[in-house]
Amino acid sequence: RPMNAFMVWARIHRPALAKANPAANNAEISVQLGLEWNKLSEEQKKPYYDEAQKIKE
């Protein structure tokens, strides 16, 4: 299954978030990633939607 825009973004940002929160488990990191993603504007998300579309094609 191809990655969606959030997954493209999260793949880039997960390592830094995990390093900054070494005690957090994957579920907690995923929740935090979701919160951070939701704070982004549509303009900030656009490159990730574009990349996800390329992956689908």
Rank of each mutant, 00 (worst) to 15 (best):
residue 55 I to P: 04
residue 16 A to Y: 11
residue 36 E to A: 10
residue 27 A to T: 09
residue 7 M to G: 06
residue 23 A to T: 13
residue 41 S to A: 03
residue 1 R to C: 15
residue 57 E to V: 10
residue 46 K to N: 03
residue 42 E to T: 11
residue 9 W to L: 00
residue 5 A to R: 00
residue 44 Q to K: 07
residue 56 K to R: 13
residue 47 P to Y: 08
residue 17 L to M: 11
residue 34 G to T: 15
residue 5 A to G: 11
residue 2 P to K: 14
residue 13 H to S: 04
residue 29 I to T: 02
residue 37 W to V: 00
residue 1 R to Q: 11
residue 29 I to V: 04
residue 13 H to G: 02
residue 14 R to A: 11
residue 10 A to E: 12
residue 30 S to T: 13
residue 39 K to I: 04
residue 3 M to Y: 11
residue 18 A to P: 01
residue 37 W to Q: 00
residue 35 L to S: 05
residue 42 E to P: 12
residue 19 K to F: 07
residue 37 W to I: 00
residue 41 S to R: 04
residue 37 W to T: 00
residue 19 K to V: 06
residue 1 R to G: 13
residue 16 A to I: 15
residue 44 Q to T: 04
residue 51 E to H: 09
residue 37 W to G: 00
residue 49 Y to L: 05
residue 45 K to L: 02
residue 56 K to S: 12
residue 2 P to A: 13
residue 13 H to Q: 09
residue 53 Q to L: 11
residue 24 A to R: 07
residue 12 I to L: 09
residue 3 M to D: 12
residue 38 N to W: 07
residue 46 K to L: 07
residue 45 K to C: 01
residue 23 A to S: 14
residue 32 Q to G: 03
residue 14 R to L: 10
residue 33 L to D: 00
residue 39 K to W: 03
residue 56 K to T: 13
residue 53 Q to N: 11
residue 34 G to M: 15
residue 17 L to Q: 03
residue 31 V to N: 08
residue 46 K to V: 04
residue 2 P to S: 14
residue 51 E to S: 06
residue 25 N to I: 04
residue 17 L to D: 02
residue 20 A to L: 11
residue 34 G to D: 11
residue 9 W to M: 01
residue 19 K to N: 07
residue 18 A to Q: 14
residue 27 A to G: 05
residue 40 L to M: 11
residue 20 A to E: 06
residue 15 P to T: 08
residue 55 I to L: 12
residue 28 E to D: 06
residue 42 E to Y: 14
residue 27 A to I: 10
residue 38 N to I: 08
residue 29 I to F: 02
residue 10 A to T: 03
residue 36 E to Y: 07
residue 54 K to P: 04
residue 48 Y to N: 05
residue 40 L to E: 00
residue 41 S to I: 02
residue 47 P to G: 03
residue 7 M to R: 08
residue 1 R to N: 11
residue 16 A to C: 13
residue 23 A to N: 14
residue 2 P to T: 13
residue 18 A to I: 14
residue 23 A to F: 14
residue 2 P to V: 14
residue 52 A to W: 12
residue 49 Y to H: 07
residue 27 A to C: 13
residue 17 L to R: 03
residue 42 E to H: 10
residue 18 A to L: 10
residue 17 L to S: 02
residue 22 P to E: 03
residue 43 E to A: 12
residue 36 E to C: 12
residue 18 A to S: 10
residue 4 N to C: 15
residue 3 M to L: 13
residue 20 A to V: 05
residue 48 Y to A: 00
residue 3 M to H: 09
residue 24 A to V: 03
residue 50 D to E: 13
residue 24 A to T: 03
residue 56 K to M: 15
residue 23 A to L: 13
residue 34 G to F: 15
residue 1 R to S: 11
residue 16 A to N: 06
residue 22 P to I: 03
residue 11 R to M: 12
residue 3 M to E: 09
residue 54 K to W: 08
residue 34 G to W: 15
residue 45 K to P: 00
residue 44 Q to E: 13
residue 18 A to N: 05
residue 18 A to E: 14
residue 15 P to M: 11
residue 17 L to N: 01
residue 46 K to R: 11
residue 38 N to F: 07
residue 47 P to K: 05
residue 20 A to G: 05
residue 14 R to C: 14
residue 33 L to M: 04
residue 6 F to V: 01
residue 34 G to A: 15
residue 7 M to D: 15
residue 57 E to Y: 07
residue 55 I to S: 06
residue 5 A to C: 02
residue 35 L to F: 08
residue 40 L to K: 02
residue 10 A to P: 01
residue 52 A to G: 03
residue 55 I to W: 07
residue 20 A to C: 07
residue 13 H to D: 00
residue 38 N to C: 14
residue 38 N to L: 12
residue 38 N to R: 12
residue 25 N to S: 15
residue 11 R to P: 02
residue 56 K to N: 15
residue 52 A to P: 02
residue 35 L to M: 10
residue 18 A to D: 02
residue 21 N to M: 14
residue 43 E to L: 10
residue 33 L to Q: 01
residue 19 K to A: 13
residue 54 K to R: 14
residue 2 P to R: 11
residue 22 P to D: 03
residue 16 A to S: 08
residue 51 E to V: 12
residue 2 P to F: 14
residue 42 E to F: 14
residue 56 K to P: 05
residue 49 Y to A: 04
residue 44 Q to Y: 05
residue 32 Q to A: 10
residue 26 N to S: 12
residue 6 F to I: 01
residue 18 A to T: 10
residue 13 H to A: 11
residue 6 F to D: 01
residue 29 I to Q: 02
residue 25 N to A: 05
residue 11 R to S: 13
residue 50 D to S: 06
residue 48 Y to C: 03
residue 31 V to W: 12
residue 42 E to N: 10
residue 40 L to F: 03
residue 24 A to M: 15
residue 51 E to R: 12
residue 54 K to S: 07
residue 10 A to K: 03
residue 56 K to W: 13
residue 4 N to E: 11
residue 14 R to M: 09
residue 6 F to S: 00
residue 28 E to I: 07
residue 10 A to R: 03
residue 12 I to V: 09
residue 39 K to E: 05
residue 48 Y to E: 00
residue 54 K to F: 06
residue 23 A to H: 14
residue 54 K to V: 07
residue 26 N to T: 13
residue 37 W to L: 00
residue 4 N to Q: 07
residue 11 R to T: 14
residue 51 E to I: 15
residue 39 K to R: 10
residue 18 A to R: 14
residue 28 E to K: 04
residue 49 Y to T: 03
residue 7 M to F: 11
residue 11 R to E: 15
residue 15 P to Y: 12
residue 14 R to F: 14
residue 22 P to Y: 02
residue 14 R to I: 05
residue 25 N to L: 06
residue 21 N to E: 02
residue 11 R to G: 08
residue 24 A to N: 03
residue 10 A to G: 02
residue 19 K to L: 11
residue 11 R to H: 12
residue 36 E to G: 04
residue 32 Q to M: 15
residue 46 K to M: 07
residue 35 L to K: 08
residue 13 H to W: 11
residue 21 N to C: 10
residue 52 A to I: 07
residue 35 L to P: 00
residue 1 R to H: 12
residue 27 A to H: 12
residue 34 G to K: 15
residue 2 P to I: 14
residue 52 A to E: 04
residue 46 K to D: 02
residue 42 E to M: 12
residue 21 N to P: 01
residue 8 V to Y: 10
residue 46 K to A: 08
residue 54 K to Q: 08
residue 22 P to S: 04
residue 47 P to S: 04
residue 43 E to S: 09
residue 19 K to E: 08
residue 36 E to T: 07
residue 51 E to G: 04
residue 43 E to R: 10
residue 22 P to T: 03
residue 56 K to V: 10
residue 10 A to N: 02
residue 19 K to G: 04
residue 15 P to G: 08
residue 30 S to E: 15
residue 22 P to C: 04
residue 56 K to C: 13
residue 57 E to D: 12
residue 55 I to A: 08
residue 4 N to Y: 08
residue 34 G to R: 15
residue 20 A to Q: 08
